[in-house]
Simulated scan of single mutants.
Amino acid sequence: MTQHDERDRTDAALVTLDMDRSDPGYRAWLKEAVRKVQADANRSADTHLLRFPLPEPWGIDLYLKDESTHPTGSLKHRLARSLFLYGLCNGWIRPGRPVIEASSGSTAVSEAYFAKLIGVPFIAVMPRTTSLEKCRLIEFHGGQCHFVDDSRTLYEESARLAARTGGHYMDQFTYAERATDWRGNNNIAESMYQQLKLERYPEPAWIVATAGTGGTSATIARYVHYMQYDTRICVPDPENSCFFDGWTRQDPLASADCGSRIEGIGRPRMEPSFIPGVIDRMMKVPDAASVAAVRALERAIGRKAGGSTGTGLWSALMIIAEMVAEGRTGSVVTLLCDPGDRYLDKYYSDDWLTGQGIDIDPYTRTLDHFLANGVWPG
């Protein structure tokens, strides 16, 4: 095909889209689709802010924002809702055409839910190692799972599928930070501060937010700056992810050779939605520490959570250890990202840990020692 032919085909496609947008049937479908997505938010209660028990003499409160109570069971429900509204209002999501997403699981579960809600097909492009429970949930909500063997090919395969099917590649890793209204509108940051209003430390010293797309950390940090709070933002990063290296070296081209074992967070490249300039601190967290932390969480509050919650909890407790050592009081908030029943065959399976060569015992002893004595082992 010549360059001239390609330009003619593009022009023809744009004319078709213009005709579609002026069609009364499309406008009626669009209004109804937007109404359905907004109605989902309107009938959903806010998520809880749970307390993690710490010794009273420390004068420090630790909270977990429990995003597992969303209709699709994870933090990604907020993101998926925002992405669908963004795509619909931009005219990118069309009746009868599939929505396609590159996802390691939870975003795909939530997007499958919203696709079903507005009546369009959904295809999740995901690593073959994604947990079976997440695959089951995607299919439960009417989505299809399209697997790749190399997680670094997710983006290209998603774009290829969108071009082949005439669908829309949602591209959460590009649009997550701009689809959400970071100034407020009941975003996750505004919700946190509203729920902390009657606590003894209503303005947290730190908010700890892990990063997959980077959209959540960007939203929280921007809101903190916009509202002129003194809260600092820490982003923990798991093994096999490049965010920490890219942030510390100020290298937008940083990359990792393989995918993260902590589903939902960590990336092999610096994603467009990851905004380094809004973050105050990053930590590199071993995968064994993440798993030890989610198991400690279950012992403390009786709740199982996914590995990304453990990554954030480990970092939050390290920050609290610093506060205790320095005699500082205050509050720290992190996220309970999704429920642990999605990972019974992974983070709660000793056989899986053995197969991955992960030994959580040293990290479990560290947590037990700190919570009992207030001192983080050196």
Rank of each mutant, 00 (worst) to 15 (best):
G73A: 03
S151Y: 04
V34G: 07
L62Q: 11
S255N: 11
L64A: 08
A176S: 13
R295A: 03
D257V: 13
G307K: 00
C337Q: 07
A372W: 10
D245W: 08
F140R: 13
E190F: 06
A372D: 15
I60R: 10
Y223S: 06
T366R: 11
T16S: 07
P276F: 10
H4G: 02
G87A: 12
T10W: 05
E111Y: 03
P268K: 04
E133L: 05
M270K: 07
R295N: 01
L137M: 15
S315W: 09
L54N: 14
I275W: 10
S74H: 01
P339Y: 05
R136Y: 12
R78Q: 05
I188F: 03
F370M: 11
Y86L: 06
S68D: 05
P57E: 15
I60V: 15
W29Q: 07
A41E: 14
T10P: 00
G266W: 07
V34Y: 10
W247H: 12
I93E: 05
D368K: 08
L49D: 02
S273I: 04
R51W: 07
E298S: 05
I275E: 11
R21F: 09
G91E: 06
R249K: 15
P127I: 01
M227G: 02
G167E: 11
F52P: 09
D46A: 14
I360H: 01
D359M: 02
S151C: 06
R160K: 13
E326I: 08
L117N: 01
Y63N: 09
P202V: 11
P98C: 07
Y343W: 06
V375M: 07
S103C: 08
D338N: 06
F84P: 03
Q228E: 15
R97Q: 13
P276W: 09
Y348A: 13
S22C: 02
Q144L: 13
E271S: 12
G310L: 00
P121I: 01
M1H: 10
P238G: 09
I123C: 00
Q195D: 03
Y348M: 10
H48D: 12
W206R: 09
A115K: 04
R7A: 12
N373R: 14
A221Q: 02
T366G: 01
S308Y: 01
D11E: 08
